[in-house]
Every structure is written in C-alpha cells, then in structure tokens.
C-alpha cells in the first residue's frame, strides 16, 4: 500500500524480503546499506536477538531519486525467518507493495525454502493479498557454496510460474542490486497500472 504525497511530492513504497531462517535477508539489506550513497539512505534498524537473529524486523529507508518530479522512497523490511516467529512475520506484511523471496540454495535448506514459500502465501492471504498478483521476485542466494541445488531444480521447486528470478551471493553483493532494481521496477509498474485502472 504505497503512500503518494502530492503535498511534499513524494512516493513511498514498502518492499519486504521474505524467506527461511538464515537465508540472507538481513545480509541483502546490509549490502544495500553499505553500498548506498549516505545522502540517499536513512539509518538501518535491526531488531535482532543477542545472537543477531532477526527478532522482529530490519528496516532500511532508501531514497532513489525522482520520477516525474516526485521523490521516490522505498522502505525495505525483512521478516524474522525462524518458523516460530510467524506472528511477527504476518505484521510486517501489512501494507506491502512488493515481495522478494530469498531462497537458500543449499541442498539441506530446500525443504525450509518450500515451507517458507507456502507460509508467505498463507500470510499474504490473511492480509488480503494474493501472492500471484503481488509484485514478486525470487532470489537464489548463497550460489557460492559447494552444496547448492542446481538452478533448474530450484526454479522448478520455487518458481513454477517463471517469475523474474536472480542468482545471488549476498555476502559479496552479487545479484543484490539486480534483485532490488527488479522489484522496484515491478512495484512502480504496478502503481502505474493501479492509477490507470482508476
């Protein structure tokens, strides 16, 4: 649910990074934070446990520049990935404009990926969204590890609809900005559609 402010000429959108525990959602945000011009980012907030596992959410406000005279701001959020934080996960999805699903490419995490994807569908539905209609991108993270599932197999399991997807190594930034750019584009295009549709 974007916020269009004609008074201050701003557009604000909310993007949520979803995925199983330890798949690299926070690492994605940290890389974006590290590589963004200080003028265009706010403080990154992490509500994490003492062992740096996300407890509630990470938050990174990003100003991307202007479109047709409107300042464009994206608010990036991550959800806690661990299964038992489901109540918190639901809350973060409120008012979402676009979702990035970060999958862990390691063989032993495939089940967790599939479970998290199902969980995303259910939690979105509870907020009145349909995963098939929300701007949605998939990122296959940790491609540098030795025990990864072949890309084709991951696509088959997680992306049967052939949505835009990206390989990534969030720790060194590979694919991180490609993912962000792709979801930003989808979100803005969706806003355009919404306006045209009246």
């Amino acid at each position: 649910m974007s916020f269009i402010n004609y008074s201050s000429r701003e557009i604000n959108c909310k993007i949520v990074f979803y995925g199983p525990g330890l798949c690299g959602k926070t690492t994605n945000l940290q890389w974006i934070y590290k590589k963004t011009n200080p003028d265009s980012k706010g403080k990154m907030i992490s509500l994490a446990t003492e062992t740096e596992r996300t407890l509630f959410f990470d938050f990174l406000p990003l100003a991307l520049g202007e479109i047709r005279g409107f300042k464009t701001r994206f608010h990036l959020y991550t959800v806690p990935g661990q299964v038992f934080y489901d109540a918190s996960r639901k809350l973060i999805l409120k008012g979402v404009d676009g979702v990035v699903f970060v999958a862990d490419s390691q063989v032993e995490r495939m089940e967790a990926n599939i479970e998290s994807m199902e969980n995303l569908r259910i939690n979105l539905a509870e907020q009145g969204y349909n995963l098939d209609k929300v701007p949605f991108i998939i990122q296959y993270n940790k491609r540098d590890l030795p025990n990864v599932v072949p890309l084709e197999e991951m696509k088959k399991a997680l992306n049967p609809r052939g949505l835009p997807d990206y390989e990534a190594i969030a720790t060194d930034g590979t694919g991180v900005f490609d993912t962000l750019k792709a979801i930003a584009k989808l979100v803005i295009m969706e806003l355009k559609k919404g306006q045209e549709g009246g």
Partner: peptide, 23 residues
C-alpha cells in the same frame, strides 16, 4: 478515482527509462 481523473498522476507516463534512471 471514480472520475478517472489522473491528469497529474506522476505514474501515468512513467517509462522503463525513468525507472532505470533511479539507479
């Protein structure tokens, strides 16, 4: 919304190029 008025909507004429420029 009902009147379909979106004359000054910032989105009406957005192009791929506009979005690429953001990055």
């Amino acid at each position: 919304k009902g009147s379909g008025k979106s004359a000054d909507s910032p989105f009406a004429e957005i192009t791929d190029e506009d979005i690429d420029k953001l990055f």
